[in-house]
């Protein structure tokens, strides 16, 4: 599968407020993420993380600024040999193909279709079986029914849920349901995945399992929001700290060794970046 390293999900000068009388949640916010990059998003409660996710997913419109997906890459390998051209996100993978701007949301357009969001709460869908729910998510993401059903086993295998495929999703445990949520975003042909608090409420075994799954996602752009830094810091390439609607820090982590040193660095960076370093709810 061809990776498009220069496919960029970008937020430029975005401000967002829920109403005119309320303070903006995001202010002059500029940020970006490339395909293949894994970014950890940190911030206190109310810092604007979920709002940023909603804007990226096209579920909300920025008050000012733009959210858009840009691709400037050239096709490689088989795609280049076939001479395929851009013009949309192919169903065979996240590679948007050669070309310039693939999707530009403009003001408020977001990057819908280019982004798959795993929300904090994963809902079972009535009496549907796990594989049916994941296939429905794939269909919602724009795939045909046939293709979504065809890809479901693969998505379930990636989250170690193959043995639960024929079980009703409403009967799963919280950790299993989170993996269903992850399968739902993995089946989407979107080049960018947003994971909102994927580790919340999981026991250590499930956290470790989910961490390994997240680490295996290398072919998409990944943005993970969590308060549990230790769970994910080893599998991300960059950390962005958000505070009071602004980017306070945005630094690469690849140069740091995994483990305690990286964890300590990120925690220190977070403490230095937020307005009130005594806050302990991150």
């Amino acid at each position: 599968m061809t990776v498009a390293p220069r496919s960029v999900l970008a937020v430029e000068d975005v401000s967002y407020r829920y109403s005119l009388r309320r303070a903006p949640v995001l202010q002059d916010f500029t940020w970006h993420c490339s395909v293949g990059e894994r970014v950890l998003l940190l911030g206190r409660n109310g810092a604007g993380k979920s709002t940023l996710f909603r804007l990226l997913a096209g579920l909300a419109r920025p008050t000012t600024g733009t959210v858009h997906l840009t691709s400037t890459t050239r096709a490689t390998g088989a795609d280049a040999a076939r001479g395929t051209s851009g013009g949309g996100l192919p169903e065979t993978g996240p590679d948007p193909g050669p070309g310039s701007v693939v999707r530009s949301g403009g003001r408020g357009g977001g990057a819908r279709g280019a982004v798959a969001l795993m929300p904090q709460t994963i809902q079972p869908l009535g009496r549907l079986l796990v594989r049916e729910q994941v296939a429905y998510a794939g269909w919602l993401a724009g795939q045909s029914h046939g293709l979504a059903r065809q890809r479901t086993p693969d998505a379930l295998a990636r989250v170690d849920l193959t043995e639960k495929a024929d079980q009703r999703s409403s009967t799963l445990s919280g950790g299993q349901l989170r993996r269903v949520g992850l399968a739902e975003v993995l089946i989407a042909p979107a080049p960018f995945l947003l994971l909102d608090e994927p580790f919340a409420g999981l026991d250590p075994v499930q956290q470790d399992r989910l961490k390994r799954i997240v680490a295996s996602i290398t072919d998409r752009g990944l943005l993970v929001s969590t308060h549990q830094i230790d769970d994910v810091v080893d599998v991300v390439d960059r950390v962005t700290v958000l505070d009071q609607g602004r980017v306070r820090a945005d630094e690469p982590l690849s140069h740091l060794p995994t483990g305690g040193e990286r964890q300590a660095y990120v925690k220190d960076l977070f403490a230095r970046s937020i307005t009130d370093p005594r806050a302990d709810d991150a």
């Binding site: 049916e132 296939a135 029914h145």
Partner: peptide
């Protein structure tokens, strides 16, 4: 991986909707 429910899945979205 082909799930054990592949036969049912092959029936299409009809089976899912009927169950839902």
């Amino acid at each position: 991986v082909v799930s054990t429910g592949g036969r049912v899945a092959a029936l299409g979205v009809g089976a899912s909707a009927v169950r839902f």
